[in-house]
């Protein structure tokens, strides 16, 4: 194990209350706090823990997005990534384009492992990791809640609907992580200072030979339908009566 690549997305911070624009053209993003996608933080944390258990393992954080995405890559460097690559673009990047871009980077970097969050909390697509693995013609282990690396293989416990499943994959492989894999570390001030000196290379989709095609056109954005507010009952007896009348118990 020599190199781990971690893919990171800049997203609206998970604490921000999302509001849809009145004209239906999207959600309000002006002046909104942006952060590293929380699942990608977990992905990076896992890469860092593998690095810390091993020797001479390099962790490279890679992102695609606007120039300000450098902020999220600096956070990744402060957490402990060795260097970062930003594929800078103002274009909307769909999962397939993201996968093609990460593939182009992976072909240059030749990592043993690529970590991603299982999904980004903005488009909730849950596609990029699987697509990257397919294009790279390598194994995928999605929704990881436990990762063990040894002898050129990864044993991954996956969170599936029925419980937990374990699969074994040969490296290199793409792993996408779920919530319970780890708890990401807090960044300390000295680490932020140190991160400013770490290398952050900026490249472009063009330089990687990728074009940002729009395959799915978003024609409208609207708020979800609201449920009607219901009634309050005064005690258990009344609750039981209502449920019984509705045939629910």
């Amino acid at each position: 194990m020599q190199k781990i690549m971690v893919c990171i997305k800049r997203v609206v911070d998970y604490n921000v209350r999302i509001r849809v624009k009145p004209d239906g053209s999207g959600v309000m993003l002006d002046g909104v706090k942006m952060s590293v996608n929380p699942f990608d933080e977990i992905a990076l944390e896992e890469a860092l823990r593998i690095k810390e258990r091993g020797t001479n393992i390099e962790v490279v954080a890679v992102s695609i997005g606007v120039a300000d995405t450098q902020q999220q890559l600096r956070t990744a460097l402060a957490m402990g990534a060795d260097r970062a690559i930003l594929v800078q673009t103002d274009a909307a990047v769909e999962p397939l384009t993201a996968a093609q871009t990460f593939l182009a980077v992976a072909k240059k970097e030749n990592p043993d492992l690529i970590f991603l969050g299982k999904q980004a909390i903005d488009d909730d697509a849950n596609q990029t990791g699987q697509m990257l693995a397919a294009l790279w013609e390598r194994p995928q282990a999605t929704y990881a809640s436990k990762v063990e690396i040894s002898g050129g293989k990864a044993s991954v416990t996956r969170e599936i609907d029925a419980g937990l499943e374990t699969i074994e994959v040969d490296l290199p492989a793409v792993l996408t992580v779920d919530l319970r894999l780890n708890e990401p570390r807090y960044v300390k001030l000295p680490d932020i200072m140190k991160a400013k000196k770490k290398p952050l290379d900026v490249t472009s989709l063009d330089a990687l030979g990728v074009s940002a095609n729009v395959l799915l056109k978003t024609v409208k954005t609207e708020p979800p339908a609201q449920r009607q507010k219901g009634v309050l009952v005064k005690d258990v007896a009344e609750l039981f009566d209502v449920l019984k009348k509705k045939g629910l118990v």
Binding site: P95, N126, Q130, Y143, R158, E159
Partner: peptide, 22 residues
């Protein structure tokens, strides 16, 4: 489901086509 979410994007990428999730 976890089955479909894991599988479908891998098919989409092999075909070079987009996926509508959920």
């Amino acid at each position: 489901t976890s089955f479909g979410k894991d599988l479908m994007p891998r098919i989409a990428a092999l075909l070079g086509v987009p996926q509508v999730s959920d």
